[in-house]
Simulated assay, not measured.
Amino acid sequence: MTSVAIVTGASSGIGAATARRLAAEGFHVLAAARRTDRLAALVAEIEAAGGAATAVACDVTSDESVAGLAATADTAPGPVTLLVNNAGGARGLDPVETADVGDWQWMYDVNVLGTLRVTKALLPALERSGAGTVVIVSSTAGHVVYEGGGGYTAAKHAQTAIAGTLRLELSGRPIRVIEIDPGMVKTEEFGLVRFDGDADRAAAVYAGVAEPLVADDVADCVAWCATRPHHVNVDQLVVRPLAQAAQHKVHRN
């Protein structure tokens, strides 16, 4: 029987790359995001490549929308064995002193409460499968703070706390909890969202960095962790480009 994987934030970037990769690994992917036009294109691409996927409109900041995702999962063509909590993002780079509370609230709602809502809603299905896996895509910002990153690092630290707490609480039940923490990843939208559409500021983050990570690199990590034998739990995987020795140390040409 085909296993079902659910990927949130699947309309672009790491989420879309993860949906493609998991479909190639044989999962039927429920690709969840708000932008249904992009999801439709993604599903068509996956199916053209011989995979199986279903588009599910879902806003992780809405209880009702997440309940709809769970209802769709209950009618999926197989057991739900994998949940990839990928939906998230950053807004702004202001110091705490002048922080925009709305930006912080959005980051907390999407990254932290979104992970909470979706995980709560899907845990029953994951447990019924007898071999469930929860993946939380967080960030190296969940380990190290930096100037201007207070809101984003606070949200990512909270996701790391969720992963660790959930692993303790699910001990003895057939559900793994895996946290994947990418460093510098260049995607088409992350920087644009953070800098309110300012393409120059978004591009400057990667200036001189020969090879930042790309979405497919992170998707590869998700797939590798998720396809280990179920008794193998990769608690935490930190992945950075070679050019990034640490959060604050990046080699630029």
Rank of each mutant, 00 (worst) to 15 (best):
A41G: 06
A40M: 09
T8D: 08
V4N: 05
G150F: 03
C225A: 15
V7W: 00
Y146H: 13
A202M: 14
A161M: 10
G68M: 11
A10K: 04
A52D: 15
T165Q: 03
Q236D: 05
W106T: 09
L170E: 09
I180F: 08
R128Q: 10
D63I: 14
A87C: 11
P77M: 09
G172V: 11
L113K: 00
R21N: 00
P174I: 13
L192E: 06
L116Q: 11
R252K: 13
E189G: 03
V80H: 01
I175V: 15
R194P: 05
F195A: 04
Q105C: 08
R34Q: 10
D235V: 14
E188Y: 00
E127I: 12
A23L: 02
D37R: 06
A19G: 02
D94G: 10
V134M: 09
K249T: 15
A48G: 03
S138L: 14
M1F: 05
A245H: 15
D103G: 08
M107A: 03
A141G: 15
E64H: 04
A245L: 15
Y152Q: 03
V177P: 07
P95R: 04
E25T: 00
Q244P: 15
L237V: 10
Y108C: 02
G150W: 01
A90E: 04
E188K: 02
K249G: 13
T133I: 11
A55D: 14
E25L: 02
A16P: 08
L123G: 07
V239Q: 15
T61D: 12
A154K: 00
N111I: 11
A10S: 10
G172S: 11
T153R: 01
G191M: 08
T165Y: 02
L69P: 07
V193S: 01
L166F: 06
A41W: 00
G183I: 14
M1W: 04
L237Q: 03
A23S: 03
L116A: 13
P229Q: 07
L237W: 01
G51R: 00
A53I: 06
L126F: 07
V96W: 11
G50N: 12
T160P: 06
R91S: 05
K186S: 13
E45Y: 01
A55T: 14
A245E: 15
S62R: 05
D217I: 09
V214H: 07
V43W: 02
V43L: 05
T115Q: 08
A24K: 02
S171V: 13
T187V: 10
T18G: 04
T119S: 12
H230Y: 13
L93P: 10
G142V: 14
H143Q: 14
A161N: 06
M1T: 06
T72K: 10
W224H: 01
T165C: 06
T54M: 12
L237G: 02
I46N: 01
A10H: 03
R91V: 11
L168F: 00
T72W: 07
V118D: 05
T2L: 07
G26M: 07
V239K: 12
G183K: 05
S171M: 11
A23Q: 00
A161G: 12
D100T: 12
A207S: 04
R117N: 09
G102L: 07
I162F: 04
G13W: 04
C225T: 14
Y108G: 03
